[in-house]
C-alpha cells in the first residue's frame, strides 16, 4: 500500500518566545515491511535540521529557532510503501515457559520493566490475570489482553493528558490511543510478555466503519512472541496491525517517542493545533498536492 502522510503541528504563543530547541520523531521507519520513500520536514520560522538515530533506531531530527517568534509550525510530509506484516503460523505454539529466556535478552529486557508512564505492578497484574486467568500460550494471552483492554476501557478523547500515567488510566477506565497502548503494554509486561510502544499513523477510509485514531498520530503496541518476534496489536481498535499502519517510532512508552518535544523561553500560555492527513497514494494515479 502506498500512503502519503501530512503531519502539521502549529504552536502559537501569546507573546514572542525565543531559544526554542526541539526534537522531532516524525520520519517513518524503514524496515522489512515498510519503506519510507520520501520524507520532507520543514518549520516556520525556518530552521536547519540535524538528525541522529536514537537508541531504538528511530530517526530524531533536532532543530532550533533562536530568534523571537509568535508561532512555530512543524510540518512533515512522507510517502510510505507498506506491505502486510507476516503473522505467526496458525499451528505455532508459544508456551509461557519460553518467556523466561526473554527476561535476560538484550532485545527484550527493558520492555519488561516498569517505565516512566507504564507500570507492571500489582494493579496491572490483577487486571491481567482477570483477563487471562490461566495463561498458557503467549499469543493467545496477548490477544485476550488486547480484547480485554478494548472492552474494559472507554475511548474518550481529551480525557487524559500527554503525561498521564497508566495507573491513572486504570482508575479512570478511559483514555485515548496512547493510554490504550500503555495499558496493554503494562498488562503484557505484568505477565512477563515483552511489550513496546509504537507511534505512527493509521490509514482508514472515512465514513461508517472508520477506525479510531486516524485523524491524528496514532499509537499501538508490539508484543514479543518467543522465538518468532514482535507482533503489532492495536488495542484501541482491537485488531492486529496490518498494512494500513505506518510505524514512525518505537520505545518503552510514549516518553521515548513523542512526535515533537522541546523547550523554549517565554511565557507559559500557548496553544497547539495538530493536523494529520493520511491518504492513499496509488503509484499509478496522479496525486493532487496536499495542504
Amino acid at each position: 500500500m502506498r500512503l502519503s502522510v501530512l503531519h502539521r503541528t502549529v504552536y502559537t504563543y501569546r507573546q514572542p518566545v525565543t531559544d526554542s530547541v526541539n526534537e522531532a520523531r516524525l520520519r517513518p521507519l524503514d524496515h522489512p515491511f515498510q519503506d519510507c520513500l520520501t520524507f520532507d520536514l520543514r518549520t516556520d520560522p525556518p530552521s536547519t535540521f540535524s538528525a541522529y538515530p536514537d537508541f531504538y533506531r528511530n530517526t530524531v531530527h533536532v532543530f532550533e529557532v533562536a530568534t523571537p517568534h509568535r508561532a512555530l509550525t512543524v510540518e512533515s510530509r512522507s510517502l510510505v510503501e507498506t506491505r502486510p506484516p507476516p503473522l505467526p503460523p496458525d499451528n505455532q505454539d508459544f508456551p509461557f515457559e519460553q518467556l523466561k529466556k526473554s527476561a535476560w535478552d538484550l532485545a527484550c529486557y527493558e520492555f519488561l520493566q516498569s517505565t516512566e508512564l507504564v507500570s507492571c505492578g500489582i494493579a496491572a497484574w490483577r487486571l491481567a490475570v482477570d483477563l487471562v486467568p490461566k495463561p498458557s500460550d503467549v499469543q493467545e494471552a496477548a490477544f485476550a489482553l488486547m480484547r480485554g483492554t478494548y472492552r474494559t476501557f472507554e475511548y474518550c478523547p481529551h480525557s487524559t493528558q500527554v503525561h498521564t500515567h497508566m495507573d491513572e488510566v486504570l482508575r479512570l477506565r478511559r483514555g485515548v490511543c496512547q493510554d490504550f497502548a500503555h495499558v496493554l503494554i503494562g498488562l503484557s509486561r505484568s505477565l512477563g510478555i515483552p511489550a513496546r510502544y509504537v507511534s505512527g499513523y493509521l490509514f482508514t477510509q472515512p465514513g461508517p466503519g472508520a477506525l479510531r485514531g486516524t485523524e491524528a498520530s496514532h499509537a499501538w503496541c508490539e508484543v514479543h512472541l518467543p522465538g518468532w518476534g514482535w507482533l503489532g496489536l492495536d488495542p484501541t481498535n482491537n485488531q492486529v496491525v496490518d498494512e494500513r499502519y505506518i510505524r514512525v517510532a518505537l520505545g518503552r512508552d510514549y516518553h521515548d517517542v513523542p512526535p515533537t518535544r522541546g523547550t523554549y523561553r517565554g511565557p507559559e500560555s500557548r496553544e497547539m493545533k495538530v493536523e494529520v492527513e493520511v491518504r492513499s497514494a496509488a503509484p499509478d494515479r496522479n496525486q493532487k498536492p496536499m495542504g
Binding site: V176, S217, P258, V274, V276
Partner: peptide, 15 residues
C-alpha cells in the same frame, strides 16, 4: 523555560 510536547490525539474533537 517551557516544555513543548506534542500530544497524540490532541485534535480529535470532531472524530
Amino acid at each position: 523555560i517551557r516544555t513543548q510536547q506534542h500530544q497524540q490525539q490532541q485534535t480529535r474533537d470532531h472524530t
